[in-house]
Design a protein around this nucleic acid. Structure first.
Length: 159
DNA sequence: GCCAACGTTGGC
DNA sequence: GCCAACGTTGGC
């Protein structure tokens, strides 16, 4: 089963917002590489919910994909910040997925600590200049993040 | 198709 | 707020 990491600015959209809504679209991704990953996501895939552009940045919680990729409606909405007039209706350019909350990490996992986890050495997340907002995570990275965040092992308790 | 300019991301 | 990194745009 693939694992993913989703970035969000918590001032804009936090884990608590997702928890309050119960389920939501992960929309507004306007980067082709991130979009291609969104298109690979399947219902049931676990995701790490990452806070960017905040102090400190890091992983706040775990979410799960509940609906795989479909056209992001906001690309066709002129009143949306994510409106893309160049996206053809016949072949929508941008994709969204639906996610639901799974759990808040008992201990917020700062980027500084993520960098100390050997499994994360190879991740784009820990590389300088990284700007990818949706990225794949290995099972080892996922487990290491949960352990460091004091969470239950979802690999054995789920599914 | 190249590449300079520009805009955005994101850690610090 | 700064600035490095990098994606996108547009002129040629």
């Amino acid at each position: 089963m693939p694992y993913w990491l989703l970035k969000s600015e918590p001032d804009c959209y936090s884990y608590a917002d997702l928890e309050r809504l119960g389920r939501d679209h992960w929309n507004g991704v306007r980067n082709y590489q991130a979009r291609n990953y969104l298109r690979q996501m399947k219902a049931g895939d676990p995701c790490l919910f990452y806070y960017s552009s905040t102090k400190p940045a890091g992983i706040a919680g775990v979410a799960r994909v509940v609906r795989s990729g479909y056209p992001d409606p906001s690309q066709f909405d002129p009143s949306s910040d994510f409106y893309d007039p160049k996206s053809p209706q016949s072949e929508p350019r941008w994709t969204t997925v639906d996610v639901e909350p799974v759990q808040l990490l008992p201990k917020f996992l700062p980027l500084e600590t993520i960098r100390e986890l050997p499994a994360w050495d190879a991740s784009p997340l820990t590389r300088k200049g990284n700007r990818l907002s949706v990225l794949p995570v290995t099972p080892e990275q996922f487990e290491a993040a949960l352990a460091a965040g004091g969470a239950e092992d979802l690999l054995t308790t789920d599914h």
